Computed example of a mutant assay.
Amino acid sequence: MNLFRRLFRSQQITNHSIIRLDPDDFKKAISKNSGKIIDVRTKREFATGVIPGAINQDVMQKNDFLQASLQWSKSEPGYLYCQSGMRSQKAARILSRNGFTKIYELRGGISGYDL
Results as ranks from 00 to 15, higher is better:
residue 2 N to V: 09
residue 3 L to F: 09
residue 3 L to R: 12
residue 3 L to S: 14
residue 3 L to G: 09
residue 6 R to Y: 12
residue 8 F to D: 08
residue 9 R to F: 13
residue 11 Q to P: 05
residue 12 Q to M: 14
residue 12 Q to D: 09
residue 14 T to K: 15
residue 14 T to C: 09
residue 14 T to M: 12
residue 14 T to S: 11
residue 15 N to C: 07
residue 19 I to E: 08
residue 20 R to N: 08
residue 21 L to T: 09
residue 22 D to P: 09
residue 22 D to A: 09
residue 22 D to I: 05
residue 23 P to N: 08
residue 25 D to I: 08
residue 28 K to E: 14
residue 28 K to R: 12
residue 28 K to A: 13
residue 28 K to P: 06
residue 30 I to N: 11
residue 30 I to V: 14
residue 30 I to A: 11
residue 31 S to N: 12
residue 31 S to D: 11
residue 31 S to L: 05
residue 32 K to T: 14
residue 32 K to S: 14
residue 34 S to E: 15
residue 37 I to C: 01
residue 42 T to A: 05
residue 43 K to P: 06
residue 43 K to R: 11
residue 45 E to H: 00
residue 46 F to G: 05
residue 46 F to H: 14
residue 47 A to R: 02
residue 47 A to F: 04
residue 47 A to I: 02
residue 49 G to D: 01
residue 50 V to W: 06
residue 55 I to S: 01
residue 55 I to D: 04
residue 56 N to R: 04
residue 58 D to I: 00
residue 59 V to M: 06
residue 60 M to E: 10
residue 60 M to Y: 11
residue 61 Q to T: 00
residue 62 K to A: 07
residue 64 D to V: 10
residue 66 L to V: 13
residue 67 Q to E: 15
residue 68 A to L: 05
residue 68 A to T: 02
residue 69 S to C: 03
residue 71 Q to F: 04
residue 71 Q to W: 00
residue 72 W to K: 10
residue 72 W to A: 10
residue 73 S to W: 05
residue 74 K to I: 00
residue 75 S to E: 14
residue 75 S to T: 07
residue 75 S to G: 00
residue 76 E to D: 12
residue 77 P to W: 04
residue 77 P to L: 04
residue 77 P to I: 02
residue 79 Y to R: 03
residue 79 Y to A: 07
residue 81 Y to R: 06
residue 81 Y to K: 06
residue 81 Y to H: 13
residue 81 Y to Q: 08
residue 82 C to Y: 04
residue 83 Q to N: 13
residue 84 S to I: 00
residue 84 S to T: 02
residue 86 M to V: 10
residue 90 K to E: 08
residue 90 K to I: 12
residue 92 A to L: 03
residue 93 R to Q: 15
residue 93 R to D: 14
residue 95 L to P: 03
residue 96 S to P: 13
residue 97 R to E: 15
residue 97 R to S: 15
residue 98 N to I: 10
residue 98 N to M: 11
residue 99 G to S: 04
residue 99 G to I: 02
residue 101 T to H: 03
residue 102 K to I: 06
residue 104 Y to H: 14
residue 106 L to K: 05
residue 106 L to D: 05
residue 106 L to H: 07
residue 108 G to E: 06
residue 108 G to D: 04
residue 109 G to F: 01
residue 110 I to S: 01
residue 111 S to Q: 15
residue 111 S to D: 12
residue 112 G to R: 15
residue 113 Y to G: 03
residue 113 Y to P: 03
residue 113 Y to L: 01
residue 114 D to W: 03
residue 115 L to Q: 12
